[in-house]
Simulated scan of single mutants.
Amino acid sequence: MTELAFTPRLALSSLSGESDAEWARAGSDYAGAAVLGGIALDSRSREAARKLVERERTEFLPDDPLAFIDRQLAALEDAPLTAGFNVRSATVDPIAEAAAVCRDREAFLEINAHCRQAELCAAGCGETLLQDGPRLCEYVEAATETGATVGVKVRAEVPGVDLPDLARALEDAGARYVHVDAMDSEGVIADVVGATGSDLFVIANNGVRDAETVREYRAHGADAVSVGRPSDDPDVLERVRAAVDREFDTDADSGSDSQTGVESTRPQP
């Protein structure tokens, strides 16, 4: 099983249609992990992705999504970072199939419960999954059963969704991490950390651009931070990497769980 405890504690967050192996390599001087994708797996999510392309959004739409995942991860076998793939599906079986590909490439799988485009939500994937916790947990369980390291990309400020409660349910279902887009509610990171066990790795996302944002998310208990849109901007990555090196002193305060392989760097109370 792939260890998620990457160093430095900076991840590159997926950007649909842009985050491929070449993108990950370009950021590998700064980041310890990269999430490729997102990619639509089943017929409903792929049709939604085609509709997004029609309105000039970028999307990965290869003929064979699983083969594409495999090729992209193979291209990163010698890269100095931990790789993962963000996937979308309106049905559970393709999630397990993608998880098996990630497992075989020693990569992690990230289930997309984050994208809020109307086309994806109408298809039953993306943010819609946040409002259907049992189905999302079913996805996690199916992926985890393959032996893959599994996480979920989630979003704060979704009506009717108690994110800390959902994170706890995802942890119980076998998720090894949650990747939280905090939106304008940075304190939700502390709420998620407080509601879950120390073995659930929490990656904080949204607005990570400089030392101030890294310090804030670290103070809320995040185990790592991620950079999204500016992930191809060396100036931003250099600033964030320097802040991560200062704020996430993994040698001084990390604790390792020999069973899960996940290290926690959360500040001690």
Rank of each mutant, 00 (worst) to 15 (best):
E3W: 03
L4I: 15
L4P: 08
L4R: 14
A5V: 04
A5L: 02
L10F: 07
A11E: 06
S14P: 15
L15R: 13
G17F: 07
G17W: 13
E18C: 11
E18V: 15
S19Q: 11
G27W: 01
G27L: 06
G27N: 02
S28E: 13
A31G: 15
A31N: 11
G32M: 05
A34L: 10
G37F: 06
G38S: 15
G38D: 13
G38W: 01
L41G: 14
D42F: 11
S43E: 15
A48D: 00
E54P: 07
E54T: 12
R55G: 07
R55N: 08
E56K: 14
E56F: 09
E56Q: 08
L61R: 03
D63K: 07
D63E: 05
D64H: 05
P65D: 11
A67W: 00
F68M: 00
A74H: 07
A75K: 11
E77M: 08
A79F: 03
P80T: 09
L81I: 04
T82M: 15
F85K: 01
F85C: 01
V87C: 10
R88S: 14
R88H: 11
P94L: 03
A96P: 02
A100F: 09
R103A: 05
R103S: 05
E106M: 10
E106D: 12
A107Q: 06
A107E: 02
L109G: 09
I111Y: 01
I111C: 10
N112R: 12
H114M: 12
L120W: 09
C121N: 14
A123W: 02
C125M: 04
G126H: 01
G126P: 09
L129F: 12
G133S: 13
P134S: 05
L136K: 14
L136T: 15
E138V: 02
A142K: 08
A143N: 08
A143C: 06
E145S: 15
G147C: 12
T149Y: 07
T149P: 03
A156S: 14
A156D: 13
P159F: 08
V161T: 08
V161Q: 05
D162W: 06
P164C: 08
D165V: 14
L166W: 02
L166M: 11
A167D: 04
A169T: 11
E171R: 09
A175C: 14
R176C: 09
V178D: 04
S185A: 13
E186F: 10
D191C: 10
D191V: 01
V192D: 05
V193E: 02
T196N: 10
S198L: 13
L200D: 05
N205G: 05
G207T: 00
V208Q: 01
V208M: 09
D210Y: 07
A211L: 06
E212Q: 05
V214R: 04
R215E: 08
E216G: 02
Y217D: 00
H220L: 02
H220T: 00
D223C: 01
V225F: 03
V227H: 13
P230Q: 09
D232N: 12
D233H: 06
D235S: 10
E238D: 12
V240P: 03
R241F: 00
A242S: 12
A242Q: 13
D249Y: 13
T250W: 01
T250S: 00
D251P: 06
A252P: 03
Q259D: 11
Q268K: 11
P269D: 09
